[in-house]
């Protein structure tokens, strides 16, 4: 066990995977220079320019070349720099990568990882702060993983690299420098298994990605004992654990950084209601962003942000109903 940042945990996991399997390689902008969050630091020195490839600013080709390389038997790690730039490569992700296995009748597989650092980070404003996770969970063929701790950043990256499915790895920009305990020998995490971060009967709280530490703190501040689940992956997601808890507590709160409207919280809530019946919950609430772009100015950005205080308020509201 060692204490390290999210970025360092992810960097080590990638290095370990690249040592284990010579067919693992990474491509994206500025990777030889370490990547914009330092998550590739030193890797070009160890693995060379054939396996840590700094590319032109050509998102369609970064994504599409990842697919071509996967179809020819390598395991590419496709770096999008930030999730927002994936929008320049949406055809390659949604209509090519997610579909090849199916539409070619299983002849080829897009065994690759697409890393998409997402969300708010240091006043980056509207085009560099989006959480588009719900779009991705909507696409058959994709696995969507969303780590919220350094240990999970490593475990999910390893799982994503070894997966024969294409995996979108949503890495929360705001957590790159967050520290946590990481096992010395991180094992790949199975997808669809939530981490239960706290226990209690008052309510079931579900969250993921950058909101994980915020929710943990908010629940502590509320002083109310709740079941808290960090989903860790959004497709597949741990419906069983969440439904079982909600059946017991009768109260559900879903917290995410993304816009609430049509956010993944809506799916979580809908599935719980389908499982428990319309009268199965005494309280249900989603806490997310308003349906507005993310603003630049610090106080304006903070107005959009999920804070521990807002989580604590929501926990009290839900627990009181």
């Amino acid at each position: 066990m060692a204490r390290m940042t999210f970025a360092e945990a992810a960097r080590r996991a990638l290095a370990e995977e690249m040592r284990r399997d010579p067919l693992v390689w990474a491509l994206g902008e500025d990777l030889v220079q370490g990547g914009i969050f330092g998550q590739y630091r030193g890797l070009a020195q160890e693995f060379g320019a054939e396996r840590i490839v700094s590319t032109p600013i050509s998102e369609s080709t970064i994504m599409g070349a990842g697919l071509g390389a996967a179809l020819c038997g390598t395991r590419p790690v496709v770096e999008m720099r930030i999730a927002d730039f994936t929008l320049c490569a949406m055809d390659e992700l949604v209509s090519q990568i997610a579909k090849v296995r199916y539409m070619f009748g299983g002849q080829g597989r897009a065994a690759l990882v697409v890393r998409m650092p997402q969300g708010m980070w240091r006043n980056s404003a509207a085009q560099h702060s989006q959480c588009l996770e719900a779009w991705l969970t909507h696409i058959p063929g994709l696995v969507v993983a969303a780590p919220g701790t350094p240990a999970d950043a490593a475990g999910l990256l390893k799982a994503a690299i070894r997966s024969d499915d294409p995996v979108v790895l949503l890495e929360p920009k705001n957590l790159w420098t967050a520290e946590g305990e990481v096992p010395d020998d991180v094992a790949p995490l199975p997808f669809g298994v939530a981490r239960q971060a706290a226990q209690g009967d008052a309510a079931t709280i579900v969250t993921w990605s950058a909101c994980v530490p915020v929710v943990e703190q908010g629940v502590r501040e509320s002083g109310i004992a709740c079941d808290v689940f960090d989903l860790r992956s959004l497709w597949p997601w741990d419906e069983g654990a969440v439904v079982a808890s909600a059946r017991r507590t009768g109260r559900l709160l879903v917290v995410h950084e993304a816009v609430t409207v049509s956010g993944f919280g809506a799916e979580v809530l809908a599935r719980v209601v389908e499982a428990l019946g319309p009268a199965g919950l005494r309280a249900a609430e989603r806490l997310g962003a308003p349906r507005a772009p993310v603003p630049f100015s610090p106080p304006l950005e903070d107005a959009m942000r999920i804070s521990p205080a807002r989580v604590a308020d929501a926990v009290r509201r839900v627990a009181a109903r």
């Binding site: 067919l23 390689w25 491509l27 054939e50 396996r51 490839v53 369609s60 080709t61 994504m63 599409g64 070349a65 990842g66 697919l67 071509g68 390389a69 996967a70 179809l71 020819c72 038997g73 390598t74 590419p76 390659e92 090519q96």
Partner: peptide, 13 residues
């Protein structure tokens, strides 16, 4: 783009 990546894989392998 797919052809480009296929060529990169061919080279790597």
């Amino acid at each position: 783009p797919i052809a480009c990546g296929a060529a990169q894989a061919i080279r790597l392998k």
